[in-house]
Amino acid sequence: MTGIESPWIAVPVALLLVAGGLLTLVGALGLVRLRNFQARMHGASMGSTLGLGCLVVACVIVGSAMAHRLALHALLVTVFVVITSPATATLLMRASLYRGRARSASADPEVIER
């Protein structure tokens, strides 16, 4: 690991990596813990927004420090995930509401966490 010996780079990168990992883990925990499907969707979106965002910024900083110039290409991953995830989320939400109605579940507000 050359080029990242400076604490001005290593400390922010380490913090971003830890934050990104924890955010994704908490989001995945929501995927398991929350009680109905619509609520679980919100947990999944934590990992793909700020969780992935933190990791990508860490990648950009490390890449730039090692190449001694601005290396932005990891940002494209976030850009693609951000512009594509609304399509998946909207279709899944509609599918669940439509299929839930078909299963005669109610779409009223319900308690998902005591």
Binding site: L23, V26, G27, L29, G30, R33, L34, N36, Q38, A39, H42, G43, M46, A107, D108, P109, E110, V111, I112, E113, R114
Partner: peptide, 18 residues
């Protein structure tokens, strides 16, 4: 959302809906 998932919001019910 992280606080809700970890169960840190204890003083009230969390309702979700449209």
């Amino acid at each position: 959302v992280g606080r809700i998932i970890l169960g840190l919001v204890r003083d009230r019910d969390i309702r979700s809906g449209l």
